[in-house]
Amino acid sequence: MNTLFLYTMSGLALFAIGLHGLIRSSHLLRKILAANLMSSGVFLIMIVGACGTDQVMIDPVPHAMVLTGIVVSVSTTAVALVLVCLVQETTNRALLWQKRKRGQGGRTDA
């Protein structure tokens, strides 16, 4: 029971770190990594919820849902990565914020 609580906290922390990274990091690739971290945290919490103890059996439905989730997250990641490559191709950088140095001006639409 104690271990399950520990894993729940771990999933919560992963989600929080991912959310923080999603908001704070400027490079788009790192934003996608952060979104993946968030989904990992959610999966962890779901599987902990499905975990059986001595008298309760394992719930296979969340397992199936997490399996589905893993495949969906790899699909979205693939599309997002292609979009990042396109952003870099058109704006020359894969950043949401542009550096203010070297007189390159304001923000890019990324």
Binding site: S10, A13, L14, I17, G18, R30, L33, L37, L44
Partner: peptide, 9 residues
């Protein structure tokens, strides 16, 4: 797990 997540970001 969270430590690695933090390090990678």
């Amino acid at each position: 797990l969270p430590w690695l997540g933090w390090r990678l970001l």
